[in-house]
Amino acid sequence: MVKAVTDHSMPSLAGLGWTDFFGDQLEPGDADLIPTRIATVHRDRLTGLSQAGPVDLTLPAQANTGDYAVGDWVLVDGHEHLVQRRLVRKTVLERRTQGGRVPQLAAANVDTLFIVTSCNADFNPARLERYLALANEAGTTPVILLTKADTAEDAETYARQAAALQRGLPVVTLNPRTSDAATILAAWCGVGQTVALIGSSGVGKSTLVNTLAGSGQQSPQQTGGIREHDAKGRHTTTSRSLHAIAGGGWVIDTPGMRTLQVSDVASGIDTLFAEITELAPLCKFRDCTHVHEPGCAVQAALKAGTLDPERLARWRKLSDENQNNTPAQSGPRGAKSPGGRGKRR
């Protein structure tokens, strides 16, 4: 049942993505347990990858697969392959679906998040900002990947619009079907590095996974086309899985998503909209809403033409949604405060 996992021949722990962050969590009683990385998460089972190769894992009686994410590190009993405990995550990507009460785990211990979109009707700045807020909050490095540039009249316009979404944001234009794609992305895909792909269906995520994994992978990802009239694709990836990159790293493919509800990403939004975040302390009033108060630095920048009104509108919408969706946490003396950054779980 572990054939879906493409693994490097006899990988080292470091090659699997193990670092001192995880090693420092080991206790004296863990000496006989095997560090194993979660490779696939299904409804009723997990598979893992250790130095010995792929393995089907057994969960403790009170656990369920929803408690684990692809990319997690767990300690496993070598005889029965029973998961003893999960190590604290360095980063974790999770999303809230519309109407969902609990965020869904997408991937864990990801170094770089490739946000994939196309140079066509799929390109949506507001949706990309949601992905960026998610990546920022998780502690991963976001990179925008633009596909289908060959079908666009002016692909550079898409690249400029994407780069303007966040300071210092890398934007890469590529064809996921060509071997050049692996070379272009090599800086983020070195030995022991883990990348994840996120984006709508039909933008080329599964194709890119196949390209990065190379011809040696056992079970290539299924790929599908898009509808011409609205650039929407079919869901060809239905579960998350870990694949070896031919150059030495690891890639996690995720099912396509068109809707993404934000919650508990206040820090990620602050990073995303730095031009607004940095103006807020200059306002006359500490609790300024940036709407009508006198002495508002944000409104002043808007009038001066140095702040994009569309960005301000999207910041306001995303911030309001995040506040409404984020459960309040009890602070000192029972005071309620919105949940903040804290993805190491």
Rank of each mutant, 00 (worst) to 15 (best):
E278C: 00
A280C: 07
G99F: 11
L49P: 10
L197R: 09
N322W: 01
K232I: 01
N109Q: 00
P125A: 11
H8Y: 04
W73I: 00
D287Q: 06
G248S: 01
V76A: 03
T211I: 07
Q161C: 00
L59S: 05
G48I: 02
T6Q: 06
L279D: 02
R333Y: 09
L105Y: 03
T151N: 10
G247R: 13
P103Y: 03
M1Y: 11
F123H: 06
G249A: 09
T112G: 02
L302Y: 14
D180W: 02
T151D: 14
W250E: 03
A213M: 04
T6G: 01
T36L: 04
A297T: 01
K336A: 12
F21E: 09
T140N: 07
R286T: 09
C288L: 10
R167G: 12
P309H: 06
W315R: 01
S50Q: 04
L13V: 03
G199W: 07
P255L: 02
G78E: 00
S9R: 13
R258L: 12
A163K: 13
Y68W: 11
E321G: 10
W188V: 05
A163Y: 08
I144P: 05
A135V: 15
N136R: 05
E275N: 02
L113G: 04
L260H: 10
A328R: 09
K303L: 09
A213T: 11
K90P: 07
Y131A: 03
A328V: 03
V88Y: 06
E275I: 09
D72P: 09
T91S: 14
L16Q: 08
K303Y: 05
T238I: 06
D72Q: 04
S239E: 06
T173M: 14
K148Q: 07
A164Q: 12
P294T: 10
V76N: 02
R345M: 00
H292E: 14
T289Y: 04
T141I: 02
D230E: 01
D30R: 01
T326A: 01
D180H: 03
G100T: 00
G247N: 01
I38P: 11
R345Q: 01
Q161I: 07
A196W: 04
T112S: 06
A301K: 06
L272Q: 03
A133Y: 15
D111P: 04
L242Y: 06
N324L: 09
G256P: 01
E293A: 00
Q84W: 02
V203C: 00
Q51N: 11
V76Y: 03
E153S: 12
L46K: 15
F273V: 03
G339K: 08
C283K: 11
D287P: 08
G224S: 14
T6H: 10
T207V: 08
A135Q: 13
N325E: 05
T178V: 05
L260D: 04
D77W: 02
I276V: 13
R37W: 12
S215Y: 07
F123N: 09
A52M: 08
V191K: 07
A107V: 02
P35W: 13
F285H: 14
E293M: 09
E228M: 12
C296T: 13
L93I: 15
R311M: 15
G168F: 13
R127E: 09
L49S: 11
G48E: 01
R258Y: 12
S200I: 06
E278D: 14
G100S: 13
A301L: 06
L87C: 03
R96G: 01
I34Q: 09
V251N: 11
D180G: 04
